[in-house]
Amino acid sequence: MTRNALPLLFGVAVLLLWQAAVVGFDIPRILLPAPTEIFAALIADPSTLFADLNQTFFHSTLIGLGIGCASGFGAALLVDRSPFLRRGFVPLASLAGALPIVGIAPIAVMWFGFDWPSKAAVVAALTFFPSFVHTVAGLESVGALERDLMVSLAASRGQMLRKLQLPASLPFLFAALKVNSVLALTGAVVAEFFGTPTVGMGFRIATEAARMNIDRVWAMIFVVALCGSGSYAIIALAERRLAYRS
């Protein structure tokens, strides 16, 4: 417990100091609202909050994340069959992962409309590459001895995959999921900066910022942060239950 106490104490101290500074020095609210004001803004309009959450997190983010991870995984399984293709596609995919893919958001709007499907498409494109690269690395991570073992047992390709390669790549799949959960949320929020129906967390942040309602912006950022850390925590928990020690 003492291990958690120190960072907790630090967090509380920052909050208190923040509140005291904003009130004490009378900092303009447009620069920095007090934590209490942010909290008030957070609970002021729950129906809008839930609509935004539903749109951006439960539709754009999660559906896009699902599509991106699954297709990256599938593509990796295909490429794993040919060392030649693997050597060609993996460097390209790693490079693509470093490119500003969110920029396709306006294209996605033209293809899938203003509503959440276009955001989910951006999220899927963003999460595809980490999923692909990590899965390929995982399938390749099997040691030479273990591979020889399966060959000596005359195991079929499917058995090699199911009993050796997939279990061995579990840590890699979780790493991809962790990276992607944050990436997906960012992508869904940012894609809304390029145009959206009048709902969504990214839309809310952009419009409230333009209206100088900084307390509402902070409240929404708090919600986004909660979604991000929440999904990360769930994945980390699942990993601890499923992962093995070596």
Binding site: G143, L145, E146, D148, L149, V151, S152, L153, A154, K163, L164, P167, A168, L170, Y244, R245, S246
Partner: peptide, 19 residues
Amino acid sequence: ARLARAYGYVFQAPALLPW
């Protein structure tokens, strides 16, 4: 012989699957 699983192979390292 391999397809008939005629032999067992013990490697330099245990090569046990950790999961």
